[in-house]
Amino acid sequence: MSRIDVKKTYKLFIGGQFPRSESGRTYEIKGANGKFIANPSLASRKDLRDSVTAAKSALPGWSAATAFNRGQILYRVAEIMQGRQEQFKSEILALEGGTAKAASTQVEEAIDLWVWYAGWCDKISTIAGATNPIAGPYYNFTTPEELGVVGIIAEQKASLLGLVAAIAPVIATGNTAVVIASEKRPLPAITLSEALATSDLPAGVLNILTGKVSELAPWMASHMEVDGMDVSGCDSKLETELRVLGAENLKRIHRFGKVPSPQRMLAFMESKTVWHPIGV
């Protein structure tokens, strides 16, 4: 008798938990060959709201963690991802098609990118901060600090690499994030959330939703608790709409290219300048 496969339920990742959508909805995703693959949760605006609440409550703890500690935790995420390499690879292969070689390369690049950003955690304020020249008996320092809660609409095509390229620079600097995964290729994002849940990342720092970008993104852009947005995964028509909605609370909205850069970290940071008397 042949064994019956144990099928996986693909769920959301909110506040360190794996709930189904509160709406109870799911949607169908198909592979590169047009065959059915899975029924992940179709997140609703209330799931988005809960994610933002979770991200906001995780913010004080995560942003207060030392940069060195954040770097260690991000490196640990890379370690866990390494152990799940095969799972990432088979998901990418099924969803994106292409060769096995290309799939492994994407996974390896994604893991290396985590490590690269992990290394940046305790260096970014050194290169972007400054001791400012002033005419007076004071020191004057500028240091970059986290912006707050950042909404991320991940790149749609490269389902793992695009995701990591967007997430890692945001949380490395002490922000917390709500991510809308690639709409048609969400499985690597769900697997990544399982890696995150078993690393030392505090609950709520990263929240991952699967569902329709066109449904969720406007609620994200108009949410007053969200301080910045990465709209790299949107078309330009939706981006315009999001920029209009986001203007209400002066949200920082950015679209990035493919090249990893410390600029991606600085895009969601704020400069704080303090005066300190000399000799005290």
Binding site: R49, V52, K56, W219, S222, H223, M224, E225, V226, L245, E248, N249
Partner: peptide, 9 residues
């Protein structure tokens, strides 16, 4: 307002 508010308000 029709959109979610935040704790800053």
């Amino acid at each position: 307002s029709g959109h979610y508010s935040g704790s800053n308000y």
